[in-house]
Amino acid sequence: MAALSTLFPVFFMIGLGALARMKKWITPEQKDGANHIVFNILFPIMIFNVLLTAKIESSLIWIILYVFIAFILTMVIGKLLSGLTGKKFAHISPYLLTTTEGGNVALPLYTSIVGLGYASNTVIFDIAGSFIAFIVMPIMVAKTTAGHTSVKELCKTILTNSFVIAVCLALILNLTGFYTYLSHTSFIDVYTNTMTQATAPIVGMILLIIGYNLKIKKETLPSLMKLLIVRFVLFAGIIAGFFILFPHMMADKIYMIAVLIYFMSPTGFAVPMLISPLNQSEEDADFQSAFISLYMVITLVVYTLIVVFIY
């Protein structure tokens, strides 16, 4: 029942988005408008809040660094294997092999098993994922879409990117102790309520858009299945790396479950929006939505196996 309470709302919103497209309740232009609102306004606010309030402890730096490097490598390997997974989607497929949807899939599934007291075990992985999604990806996308521009123009494009600004500002305020100071003042409630109001619609809108774009075409199935297998193998390798590099932590069953669930969860829901400037056709968006939706099945199978055989 815990898995159902976590996954059903996700599939419901995806299904609602697909129904909205089939019934023509939402036009493609309206969907694109919603996409721009989330991507250009709400997402930067969310990542600012996540990084501002994150507790970056020095003892966990090595884990964050490992996950960051691992996520970078998945993109590099994805690029090298783009011929195998399908040249038609080679410009977007490497991005689908990195990051994990921690907040809306991994975290609730994990805490449904071990309880909220251990939530930080998966949240720490999201710090590395946030750097990839909201710094590395925007820079790569900006560089790709900028074309043959000068270094000066490229730097301007990157530095004026709303995600880059949000990340840099949040880290500066975090490391200087601004949030700690704010949390001891009466303005903390104003800040918290404002962030809650601004970020509340994000996940639902993302899932609705993913569902709207969800069209699994027969001709894309070979590429989808190959990419699913590649991601599964790569992330199984990341899990193996935890056993090799952090054996003392993986000896703790509760921590091991966090690693297994997190790195077997789907690509971050934000990725399709982050890389949308790279889309060459509507089929690209369809491919991304289908990939994330299909990987949810793998996540559910892994969750079930952990509940039955490990915990």
Rank of each mutant, 00 (worst) to 15 (best):
V271F: 00
Q288C: 12
T27G: 03
D189S: 00
G102H: 07
L227E: 12
F43I: 11
D126C: 09
E29K: 12
L52Q: 09
P222L: 13
S276F: 07
L154A: 04
D126P: 05
V302Y: 07
C168V: 15
V167D: 00
Y118H: 13
C155M: 14
F8W: 10
L171D: 00
P266E: 08
A146W: 07
M137R: 06
M140N: 12
T145P: 08
M46F: 01
S93N: 13
A18R: 14
N161H: 12
L4G: 07
T99E: 13
S150L: 11
F246Y: 01
I210M: 14
V230W: 05
K31Y: 00
I14G: 07
H148V: 04
A142Y: 06
F263M: 01
L294M: 06
E219F: 08
I229Y: 04
I92Y: 02
I261F: 10
A240L: 15
D284M: 00
N161E: 03
P138W: 12
Y118C: 10
V203S: 03
D189Y: 01
W25K: 08
Y255M: 14
H248C: 06
V123A: 11
L224Y: 09
Y311N: 08
T98N: 10
I306L: 11
I124D: 07
K88H: 11
F43G: 02
G78Y: 00
V297I: 15
T220S: 15
S130T: 15
I310C: 10
I306W: 03
A2E: 15
E282N: 14
T85D: 07
V167M: 14
M296L: 15
Y295G: 04
L294P: 01
Y212E: 02
Y181P: 01
Q280W: 03
L7F: 13
N193R: 02
I63W: 04
N40L: 02
I216N: 06
M1P: 10
I261V: 13
T220V: 14
A133N: 14
L73A: 13
V164Q: 02
T160N: 13
K156H: 15
L234T: 09
S162K: 12
L96Q: 08
T149E: 03
F309S: 09
M22L: 10
P28W: 00
F269L: 13
F163S: 11
L182I: 02
K152T: 14
T267W: 00
F269E: 03
K152N: 14
F8N: 08
L42G: 00
T144D: 12
V136R: 03
A166D: 04
Q288N: 03
Y66D: 11
I26C: 00
T267L: 03
T180L: 06
I261K: 02
L4E: 08
K226F: 07
G241I: 10
I254S: 05
N279C: 01
I113P: 05
M13V: 07
T304E: 01
T194I: 05
A290W: 01
V230R: 08
P247H: 04
Y311S: 12
L107H: 08
V123P: 05
L171M: 01
G86L: 10
G15S: 11
P247I: 04
F178T: 03
D286V: 04
K88S: 13
L227Q: 12
G78K: 03
M195G: 01
L278K: 05
F187W: 15
A240C: 15
I77Y: 10
L109K: 06
G17T: 02
I63R: 06
E101W: 12
I238F: 00
L154E: 12
L208H: 13
K156E: 11
L7E: 04
A70V: 09
A251K: 04
L97K: 05
